[in-house]
Design a binder for these strands. Structure first.
Lengths: 121, 121
DNA sequence: TCCGCATATGTCGCCGCGCGATATATGTTC
DNA sequence: GAACATATATCGCGCGGCGACATATGCGGA
């Protein structure tokens, strides 16, 4: 499960949402760092529905615009909970493995400024 | 940064390792759930070297077999620490978001913004 | 003796999937 | 009426995960 897909499930775990609402929720959840494109959103949504994690939850028209809602299934909720636990454990193990380094704190202020792992060459 | 790439950096953060050692370390780190294939490993390693996160650390022959060692650079260490912090925060947010169900009760609003004191460190 | 497995390196191609671009439509704001 | 936010959905590019394959040594069992 990709991180984007995970964030979508978390967003739907809070409450049923429509597509555009998921995009906004994910952006908020990730502190504005993850911005889902339309292609990403519907690809993830379709696969999640296929996996039985998400299901359509009805359509509502608000201000003349259609909202197609999705909700997490019990299976999806279990999956996202399990993934959350796995992530938390992984982070904890990583922290232990890396030990307390020189700058253990968040070093708040400047953005990390670290190069991306794929682009720079 | 993918989870596989992250795990490789964590494994190298513990201590310098050779390729096969990284595969074993990642499997251990992920509780046997993530098994790196050769293609995955060297792809990640090459990109990580290109990004300045990892560098070659010498070659040793053990039992007639060549071991090519890699080590994390200071930049790579900073990156993996930052990613660890990001992951931990994400998991914590997710737990809070999932903890308060959709319509659990009258307090459907903001999930009591009280900061979690003394988080798991 | 020889077969298979673990150790150890590396390459190649498939394809899943993230993601920007694009299309379509309505309400609001300036 | 131009620009933007809201709201939907599709298409194709390309990165990257990952299995398959190639190659080589040491070891243990049949």
């Amino acid at each position: 499960m990709s991180e984007q897909a995970y964030l979508v499930l978390v967003a739907l775990g809070e409450e049923p949402r429509h597509g555009y609402g998921v995009v906004q929720a994910v952006r908020a959840l990730s502190d504005g760092q993850v911005r889902l494109g339309a292609g990403t959103l519907y690809g993830i949504l379709d696969r999640a529905v296929g996996a039985g994690y998400v299901e359509a939850s009805g359509e509502v028209v608000v201000d003349g615009r259609l909202r197609r809602y999705y909700r997490l299934t019990p299976t999806g909720l279990a999956a996202v909970r399990a993934e959350t636990l796995r992530l938390a454990e992984l982070a904890q193990r990583a922290r232990r493995a890396l030990g307390a380094g020189p700058t253990t704190g968040p070093t708040t202020g400047p953005t990390t400024g670290l190069p991306a792992l794929g682009g720079t060459s």
